[in-house]
Amino acid sequence: MEIKLQLNGRAVRVPDVDPDTTLYDFLRAQGCASVKCGCETSNCGLCTVFLDDVPVLSCSMLAARAAGHKVTTLEGLQAEAEEFVGFIADQGADQCGFCNPGFVMNTIALLRENPDPTDEEIKAYLSGNLCRCSGYEGQLRGIRRFLDSRNSRKEVPHA
């Protein structure tokens, strides 16, 4: 089947896609190497991408379901990611990095939805993003430092 969709802001048309192709396989074939697969059973969150700006697990969705929609991967969100990933790097919480794209995608979704989350809200929102290296604490510290830094910047005009 033919699939047409908008991928990271550009129109993509792919003929001859097998109907059982997952969105994950489709996106990897389109060169979106940031999209990772850690479990195949929708348990780990590594394959998180946005479908019409909503996070979905691409390993558990058929590419056909994304036809006609807007799909965004980390390749299309570099500037937004760059705003805060340095704070994760400062904690050393990137570690092996294999879960980072899914984690970064879902953090972006969180911050778009809830720009000033509490620690509990951060943990709850990201609970579907597994990380085997960091123990999560460094990721939380990184997000917290980013929010603190952003909030203190915002406060400057009023100071």
């Binding site: 999209v35 990933v85 790097a89 990095g97 294999f98």
Partner: peptide, 21 residues
Amino acid sequence: KAVRKKDSLQLLLGKPVYTSD
């Protein structure tokens, strides 16, 4: 000192650096 990992931004920004990539 807490120096950033040399590969940290490559990893955090999802660049193709692993075997399958």
